[in-house]
Amino acid sequence: MMVEEGVVDFNNLPEGCIANIVSLTTPRDASILSLVSSTFRSASDSDAVWDHFLPSDYHSILSQSPSSSSSSSFPSKKHLFLFLSQNPLLIDEGKMSFQLDKVNGKKCYMLSARMLFIVWGDTPRYWKWVSHPDSRFSEVAELVSVCWFEIRGWINTRLLSPNTLYAAYFVFKPNPVGAYGFEYQSVDVSIAIAGGETRERTVFLDAERGRRLRYQIVPRRAGIFNRTRFVPIVEENNNNVDDLQCPKEKGDGWLEIELGEFFNQGGEDKEVEMGVYEIKGGDWKGGLVVQGIEIRPKLNP
């Protein structure tokens, strides 16, 4: 193939040189570049590239999971990366999960409900601990009924990838009977790095709130627990519906709501505190199943 003077034919570069260039990109870019040619495929799939995408402490992380094989059991570093990006790895006695972001290789963690501080969490009258077929953890926390709803969690910044914008998400779903008390009651969420400013905002845990506001469904309360009944009004109302801070469904069927974001500069040893709470309204609430709080890189929309 003729190459114009002054134009570099990358296919003529040594494979090691191409691998060095590809390792400066992202896992997604490496996968795309592997389609360019057989030379690029060989370089892009090499251990030299994918070892760069793996966190430097991946050996230590793998050793924390009793169910995980050693890195030597994988045919290549790419296979290991794909495994860690597609399969949450249970660590810390099964109370936390670790995963790699498949796009950029950044670290992701989920704190199980057992790792969270839940007010009245050990009182069966208010909360119960059950197994759930859709949960990655052995047990989840199911809200029976409370008027003081407060959940908090913590993670150390040294566990996370440096120079990365992270967001924390409360992961939950209603039980089969359905949740109540959150339909028209907002909750507060917050996030703060030790020594820094606490960022708070108001959200809703009811995934159907947008639909109800769009059709102006009016609540009527009845019963000892102030459960809510609804009378729909046909007239449609689109004002500010798209601006609502409501839960979104994840790919695994759970719901999530963002608690806030923070930038992890790296090289520091600080605690990040995350919270979701409703302690002012006084109404009884129940029916939520809590899987945990997930901390993952926040991608640009």
Results as ranks from 00 to 15, higher is better:
M1C: 12
F10M: 15
F10C: 12
P14H: 12
P14S: 10
E15Y: 05
E15G: 09
I18H: 07
N20V: 09
P27A: 10
R28Y: 06
S31P: 00
I32P: 00
L35S: 13
S37Y: 03
R41G: 05
S42H: 08
D51K: 14
P55I: 01
S63Q: 15
S65R: 10
S71Q: 11
F83C: 03
F83L: 04
L84G: 06
L89S: 06
L89N: 05
L90F: 06
K95H: 13
K102M: 03
N104V: 15
K106R: 15
K107V: 02
Y109H: 01
M110E: 07
M110P: 01
R125F: 06
D134S: 13
S135Y: 07
S138E: 11
V146C: 07
W148Y: 08
E150L: 13
I151W: 12
G153N: 11
L159R: 03
L160H: 04
P162G: 03
A167M: 04
A168G: 10
V171H: 00
F172M: 00
P174W: 11
Y180L: 11
Y180I: 04
G181T: 05
E183W: 08
Q185T: 13
D188R: 12
D188T: 14
D188W: 04
A192M: 13
G195C: 11
G195D: 14
G195T: 09
E200S: 15
V203K: 09
V203L: 04
F204C: 11
R212P: 02
V218A: 10
P219K: 13
R220D: 15
R229V: 13
V234E: 14
N237E: 10
N238A: 13
N240G: 03
D242V: 07
Q245M: 08
E249K: 14
L255G: 00
E258F: 11
F262D: 00
F262C: 02
F263G: 01
Q265Y: 07
G267I: 00
G275Q: 10
V276Q: 07
V276W: 05
Y277D: 02
D283W: 12
D283E: 08
G286I: 01
G286A: 11
L288I: 14
Q291L: 12
I293F: 06
R296D: 01
N300A: 15
P301E: 09
